[in-house]
Design a binder for these strands. Structure first.
Lengths: 153, 153
DNA sequence: GCAGTCGCTGCTATGTTGTAACATCACTGA
DNA sequence: TCAGTGATGTTACAACATAGCAGCGACTGC
């Protein structure tokens, strides 16, 4: 069984436990994200489904499916890039905190990391002093991966 | 002299020193951002120029002007919201570090803060360990301001 | 002053991301 | 089997952004 198939299997299991449905289309969208180590836009996922499965999924459906998958904790939306990535922890049984992301501006490769929780709470404190409440601890950082860094030099 | 006019004066001075031109249109766009404590989208700035000066500036020009102002360090682009804000430090003569932003998801109000430099360097280190180089230390945080927080409750 | 140049702006078209509103399809359970 | 609910389709459109080319206007050097 391929890596991707294993992850999809896990995701399906996850949905069963939560009483939600992992439909064929949802699996296809998720598989696109799992197969790719890059973040993909909704429209890139449309292309992926067309090429890979010969299926034309309208934009509206892709967005609904992405919203569903995000709700289930299977994908993350990257607001900085307006793209989407599969969660790096679909296969972990342990629950995990809010992730932070390193996003390559060159090739959209994404690394999901977990920064020091003390740092996040310090950020939260700074925000509160300024009269703001942080709604999401998901930090997104504009980076270049080593590969793109090399070819840019 | 109004607060805004003073800031515009400073900005003009800044451009003179750098050998770049602060044209009328550029001043109008900048004044829109300075007048507002919120982040504005390019299209909101078009509306502003129309209402305030009766001048129709096409989107293309607004984007070029925003790019120029960003180049000059007079405005910041908030990628999280696809909006723009005037730099909070146009009037400071001291140069300042890379800013971080608290963005209210309710009303687009923005607070520019400077977080502990040690935190930023810790982030940078984490990134490098993961094979990424941070290209911008500009963190943008999804928040609610106290006011919106109150009305949401 | 005048020609040449370069930077700024205008115009048109188009690409990309995302959503509203309403219709239809398909699975589930009584 | 049939009603109800959730998933998907369709159409239209809003918001953000850029490409490419044309024209205008302000400086420079002669």
């Amino acid at each position: 069984m391929s890596q991707t198939a294993g992850i999809l299997e896990q995701a399906e299991q996850h949905c069963r436990e939560r009483g939600s449905r992992m439909t064929e289309k949802r699996k296809r969208v998720l598989s696109g994200l799992v197969d790719s180590d890059k973040a993909l836009s909704a429209y890139e996922l449309i292309d992926y489904c067309k090429e890979q499965f010969g299926e034309n999924i309208p934009a509206m459906s892709i967005y609904r499916i992405l919203a569903f998958l995000e709700e289930e904790g299977l994908v993350h939306k990257l607001n900085l890039a307006n793209k989407y990535v599969a969660c790096a922890h679909i296969c972990c049984d342990h629950s995990h905190g809010v992730p932070q992301f390193l996003i390559c501006g060159g090739c959209s490769k994404v690394k999901e990391i977990t920064v020091n929780p003390a740092m996040i709470s310090e950020l939260k404190k700074s925000a509160e002093q300024a009269g703001f409440t942080m709604m999401s601890q998901q930090l997104e950082m504009d980076c270049l991966c080593d590969e793109c860094m090399g070819s840019a030099a």
